[in-house]
């Protein structure tokens, strides 16, 4: 392990923190210094929490994914809003388990967050051994179709992005 690797285990994360600090404050040399110290210390302290290094293989595809996610969030909000306002008494809520084919921890986190942000679903439990996600759905109509939809829309692109 080189000197640099020991002090900067996650260079991207450290850089992100410095940038964040500068964006939140007026730019000055003092803030650059303080931000850098904080960024290095925080990335060292949080290092044990990083499960393993996840590699984003295709950043461009990640951007496309995030863009589509934003659209889906808008759409899902309209759907959920309509259900809350007009059919809150005929809703059939329920749980279902989603079989994961992703293995990368960070990719799974992304998928679970995506599921929580989109149409009427909230991820409730991640079973690491059985490799499934437990998902609660506001209106569970057709379980199979929903699983297929999540797989096609989100899991496959994530698989490509992280080359999992």
């Amino acid at each position: 392990m080189t000197w640099l690797q020991r002090w900067l285990p996650h260079p991207l994360f450290t850089g992100f923190l410095v940038l964040l600090w500068l964006l939140m404050n007026q730019f000055s040399f003092a803030h650059l210094l303080l931000g850098s110290v904080l960024a290095v210390v925080i990335s060292l302290v949080t290092q044990p929490f990083w499960p393993e290094r996840s590699r984003v293989k295709y950043p461009g595809k990640l951007l496309v994914y995030l863009g589509r996610l934003l659209l889906d969030i808008l759409k899902s909000n309209l759907v959920v809003a309509r259900r809350i306002l007009f059919q809150s008494d005929d809703l059939k809520p329920g749980f279902f388990t989603y079989p994961l084919s992703l293995t990368d921890d960070f990719a799974v986190t992304m998928l679970a967050s995506t599921i929580s942000l989109t149409p009427g679903t909230v991820s409730a439990h991640y079973d690491r051994e059985g490799r499934t996600l437990l998902i609660h759905c506001l209106h569970l109509d057709d379980e199979e179709a929903l699983i297929q939809d999540i797989h096609r829309r989100y899991e496959l692109p994530l698989q490509e992005i992280f080359d999992d």
Binding site: I73, K92, G94, A112, S116, V122, L134, H136
Partner: peptide, 30 residues
């Protein structure tokens, strides 16, 4: 946008652990 799903996930997990809403309207309660 990054933290809302995480807090929702943690609340759901805690609720499952404590058995909140068991026998309620939600089907297939694990």
């Amino acid at each position: 946008f990054a933290t809302a799903p995480v807090s929702a996930h943690m609340m759901a997990k805690a609720a499952l652990f404590r058995g909140v809403g068991k026998g309620g309207p939600s089907r297939n309660y694990p």
